[in-house]
Simulated assay, not measured.
Amino acid sequence: MKKLINNPDHVVEEMIDGYVKAHSSYVKRLEENDRSLVTSKETAEGKVGILIGGGSGHEPAFMGYVGAGMADGVAVGNIFASPPPAPILEVTKAIDKGAGVVYLYGNYAGDVMNFGMAADLAAMEDIQVEMVIGSDDVASAPKEEKEKRRGIAGEFFIYKTAGAAADFGYKLEDVARVARKTNDNTRSMGVGLSSCSLPQTGKPSFVLDENEMEVGLGHHGEPGIRKAPIDTADNVADELLNHILSDIEINEGDDVVVLVNGLGSTPRMELYIMFRRVEKVLKEKGINIYRSYVGDYITSLEMGGASITLTKLDDELKKMIDHPVDCPMFVQR
């Protein structure tokens, strides 16, 4: 599988180097650790810091969401692998403004371990840390075992609402509360059409037949709930929505924010065809789309496919969703 790279073992460092040089007005790399990036703009004393992070390969996540209105810093891991505690701790120390730091990350064993270790180290530096774990993927565990679910594209809305709460001056525990409420109100499910390949191997990370799709596929190629012949966009959207809406109580008259997310190589054309169906189904059910997002927000290298995310909103979350953002990879005015 073809890639425009140099040494496969240096792709993350070279990506970070290029990213920082391209967006130097937004982000800077800490001298203490070259996997630690923070906002290049001064943040206010007393503001809660927002730290995100995870493995590379999900671009524009996670680096692309450091900026005004969202994250203050990011720790960057190897491809599809958690950052170790050291870069997380360096970002924590850099963005703490005396009010503590909230860690936002997905529910993966490496992330849970390494962010937890970093939080313990931060406590030794007298920095308060709250941790919120994204777990929006309905395909990855039954409803009664939601704590086992993976975090996928719905993490984007956690960054959005937590970043806004911090901007509004919420205290540490309330920023974390908003982030947890967002996660509790968020459900996602994806479909995979084609594999991606790691630069070090150049081989597909999983195999699908030419006319096959996998419903519920994870962002790292984790198995979904079934393989089937590829279907129409409408039928796929219906299936994903059925799983989402059967998992969370969203009633007629409720407001939701919708994300149709590409996994890396899916054309916008196809994503908008998917969104068209999502809008139609929700309208028929009397569910109001408060805001909508369509595009590549959390990807999986060059994987083919898409995911659908719904977040049920209340007045507080609407305020957070509406808050302006200015990041290299996401702007909302």
Rank of each mutant, 00 (worst) to 15 (best):
D174T: 09
S140N: 05
M113F: 13
A94S: 14
L121M: 15
G154Q: 03
N107F: 12
D72M: 00
V132Q: 01
V76N: 00
K143R: 15
V138K: 04
V191G: 02
G190K: 10
A123V: 02
V91F: 11
E90G: 01
A162C: 11
L104D: 02
K143C: 10
D137I: 13
A119T: 05
A94L: 03
I95R: 00
D137W: 08
G192E: 07
F80H: 05
I152V: 15
K143W: 06
G190V: 11
V175K: 08
A153C: 09
K146S: 15
E173R: 10
V76H: 01
L193F: 15
I158W: 00
I79P: 00
S188N: 07
D136S: 09
G73H: 06
A141L: 07
S188C: 15
D126L: 02
R180S: 14
K181P: 00
V74F: 02
G169L: 10
A165I: 13
A94G: 05
F80S: 12
A139I: 03
E144M: 07
K93D: 01
R187M: 12
G73R: 00
A94I: 03
M189S: 03
D167R: 10
A162T: 00
Y103C: 11
G110R: 09
E155W: 05
A166E: 03
A75S: 14
V129G: 06
E173V: 13
M70H: 02
Y159W: 15
I88K: 04
A123H: 05
G73I: 00
N78M: 13
Y159Q: 14
N114Q: 14
A99Q: 05
V191Q: 10
F80R: 10
A139E: 03
T182R: 11
G190F: 04
L89I: 14
V129Q: 03
G151W: 13
L193N: 06
Y103N: 08
A71Q: 02
V129W: 01
E130L: 07
A86V: 12
